[in-house]
């Protein structure tokens, strides 16, 4: 489809201290509902957005981390995570929510959405986008 553009959403802020993360997620959902090619990149404190085990009960805020797991249904199948940002924070892939999608072209096999990338790979990733939105 010629009017489908490649969108990369760059998430670099932790989830609850500011409203950026939630706003980004809402824009992603809207963009994906319009069937654009949507990809997400989590780097710097943005990696905390998809940390496992978030419980906002006591903080009395909405825990929106379960919503990232719905993105596979929205055909958002590429979630890039900056390896260096994880390492700097003492995190590994196992500390992140297990995000998956069902591959329609492969008999609906469940596949991992998260791809760890280096900063060189991020540079190349950015170059191939039509639009980059930063949050």
């Amino acid at each position: 489809m010629s009017d489908t553009k490649k969108f990369l959403y760059v998430n670099r802020k932790a989830p609850y201290g500011t409203v950026y993360a939630l706003e980004s997620l809402e824009v992603v959902l809207i963009g994906a509902a319009f069937e654009q090619d949507v990809q997400l990149l989590f780097m710097d404190d943005g990696v905390f957005q998809i940390a496992k085990g978030q419980d906002t009960g006591e903080a009395e805020m909405k825990n929106f981390s379960p919503t990232y797991s719905a993105l596979g249904d929205y055909e958002v199948t590429k979630m890039y995570v900056d390896k260096q940002s994880l390492e700097e924070r003492g995190l590994t892939l196992d500390d992140l929510i297990h995000l998956t999608y069902e591959d329609e072209d492969d008999d609906y096999a469940e596949k991992d959405s998260i791809r760890l990338v280096s900063r060189e790979e991020i540079a190349a990733l950015m170059e191939e986008q039509d639009v980059i939105l930063s949050f």
């Binding site: 509902a33 379960p66 719905a70 249904d73």
Partner: peptide
Amino acid sequence: EYYDEYQIAPAVRVLTKA
């Protein structure tokens, strides 16, 4: 059930498929 799991109401396209 969908809302309970994902904390959002799905878009129509997603709802239809699901």
